[in-house]
Simulated assay, not measured.
Amino acid sequence: MKRSFFGVIISLYLVTGTVMAQTVTLDYFFNHETHQTKGGQTERFHYLWEDTANSGFSVWGDIFRSKGATLSRLDTAPTAANLKGTSVYIIVDPDSRKENPNPNYIQQADADNIARWVKAGGVLIMMANDSANVELNHFNLLAGKFGMHFNNDMQSHVIDDAHFEDGAVLINNNPVFKTSKKAFIKDACSIGLSGRAKPLLKAANGTAIAAITKYGKGTVIAIGDPWLYNEYVNGRLPAGFDNDKAAADLAVYVLSQCKLHPNRNMVN
């Protein structure tokens, strides 16, 4: 009699006291921005696990770790071989030429490889930006695989810190964000939807700025902004905004949806 997957996992836990950690991989290839340090050195920055400044994802990374996940990075184009060790794959703010003179654009082969990985059970998170700060044409090659399209616009524009409410997103009875009630998302692009794709979060005017769909055994979530980087989950927002809870909610949800449980390329 064949043992079920969950039976194997339970047996492993009983024998060892642990189970294999799910691996959350952040793209470092399509997003590859650099700047000059005070010492004149060229340094990677913007939406990196190890970046502890406001521009980084170190806080969200710590949340994933607190849920038992292992963090990894992917410095090359996604292929079947180098996605094999990943449960959750996150692509954030692919470079335009304004951000990188030699950007690595998402190609059709990349979109095909990622779609096959999702179909087999992976969880993909795509995080865009307002159209002035992200390369959308090639990103939409990937988004279109799942009935999603990042639009060339800007929703929930926030002028300055005196106008946080312009970026308020009210959350109620949401299948993903179960503890957060009010999020802050500013200057996001809207997302056009078709097929099985459904809105996940909406701007005040009713346009979708986050979406979700199932694809084969996998799950895809699209967000029109990098959103959960350190600046907006580190306590800087006024009381009443729940971005820290939203970051935890999203981490819990995507880990619960994983059908792949490998472990590789640990960051630390």
Rank of each mutant, 00 (worst) to 15 (best):
R97H: 15
G167N: 07
N102F: 11
I221E: 02
A168E: 14
N268M: 12
S180K: 03
T76P: 05
G224I: 02
A239T: 09
F5E: 07
G40M: 03
N104W: 04
N268Q: 11
V158M: 12
S58Y: 04
T179D: 11
G167P: 10
G121Y: 08
Y229G: 07
L255W: 05
G122N: 02
I209M: 00
N243M: 06
R236P: 05
P199G: 05
G56N: 08
N172P: 05
I159R: 15
G147E: 07
S131K: 03
G147D: 09
E50R: 14
A111Q: 09
G68H: 09
I91W: 07
V59W: 13
G206A: 08
S66H: 04
Q107F: 13
E99K: 12
N152E: 14
N230M: 02
G206D: 01
G167F: 07
H35C: 06
I9P: 02
N100R: 14
W60E: 01
T42S: 10
G147V: 05
M148Y: 12
T207D: 12
T76C: 01
F57V: 09
N100M: 14
L200E: 09
N151A: 14
S72V: 00
L124C: 13
N174F: 06
N129E: 15
H35Y: 15
L14C: 13
S96D: 09
F6R: 03
K217R: 15
A246G: 07
R264K: 14
N173F: 06
G218C: 09
N173H: 10
S156I: 04
N133S: 07
P101S: 13
N268S: 11
V252L: 10
S194L: 01
H32L: 04
P226D: 13
L255K: 00
S66L: 09
K259H: 09
D187P: 05
V59R: 13
W117D: 07
I185E: 03
K245A: 11
I90Q: 08
C189H: 04
A143I: 03
S58A: 13
E99L: 15
P78Q: 08
H149M: 14
I63N: 05
A77I: 00
A53S: 15
K217Y: 11
W49K: 00
R196Q: 15
A69E: 07
P175E: 07
V233I: 15
C258R: 06
A53H: 11
A188D: 02
N205L: 03
N152C: 12
S58N: 13
N205F: 02
R65Q: 15
V24C: 06
M126C: 13
K259S: 10
P238T: 09
N133K: 11
H138I: 01
N243W: 03
L250S: 03
R236Y: 01
Y253A: 06
G121I: 05
G195K: 07
G7P: 00
I209C: 01
F64Y: 14
N265G: 06
N113G: 00
V254A: 01
A211G: 02
D62W: 04
S11R: 03
S87L: 02
N230V: 01
A21K: 14
D62G: 15
S66Q: 12
